[in-house]
Amino acid sequence: MDYFLSLTTTGLVMGIIYALMALGLTLIFSILSVINFAHGEFYMLGGYVSYFLLSTFTKLNPFLAIPVAGLAAALLGIVVERLFLRPMHQGQIERPDEYAILITFGLSFFFQNLVLAVFGPYPHRPTSFFSGAVSLGGMRIGADRLTASVISLLLLATLLVVINRTWIGKALRAVSQDKDAAAVVGINSLWMNTIAFGLGVGLAGVAGAVLAPTFSVAPDVGAVPAIRSYIIIVLGGMGSIPGSILGGLTIGLVESLGAGYFPDPSRALTYKTVFGLVIFALVLLFRPRGFFGREET
């Protein structure tokens, strides 16, 4: 396959998975107005749940680990939301914006060190979905990676349907647009907060579980995807669901084409993350609402 086309394919395959994780982050932001700085750790925990499950019950179908990891992350998220974030929305916390940043940042520190203390530093990898690679028009893609991408795509489609067509999706959208008006029609925004946070970090957990056979897990694997997700949601417009999908694909392409075409190959990988960060800083400065965001900074 043509060099450009094969880089594009690589970028899009990864971009879909990036989008899934960023979508969770943007969902949380649109409902709770909170940036979850522990998002990467929920991704990491998803990977560890999958690893723990599949290494304990070796006969288990690896696909089963995905919903379990997602549910575990979501449950943990619900507990975190009830314990630490709900008081904020009940007016019990002064200066909630600052509090939200710090509390999620503190949680990320806590989870990372907890996993390090429990599982140790060695990288682990759960069982493959399918071993080997698949040939796509002459270009080979790892079977696990392609599987992760397809699952992410299906999940993204399902989520779009849920958000646009179901009662719960409408309620969520109502809260994200106008809390007071939503309350008038009988939507309990506190419950919507819990649901959105659980769903958002559950998606991070799923992303962690689907990617674990490809990238392996270690206590600090959450950092890179977390920073990438911030870039994506800023690029797409904070709180915008189509924005996060488009942003995810864009960042997938930028990383892939950037490394593929950067003039000095010796530095191409070192600066791969910088490409994203620079775009991010520029978007924040010059077009803070990103692709689809609402006008506010």
């Binding site: 909170v34 940036i35 914006d97 911030y230 870039i231 800023v234 991010f280 800083a281 924040l284 900074t297």
Partner: peptide, 14 residues
Amino acid sequence: RFKAAYLALFTIAF
């Protein structure tokens, strides 16, 4: 011009 969350993200990026 940045509010709390944007400021935090921008400074992390920097």
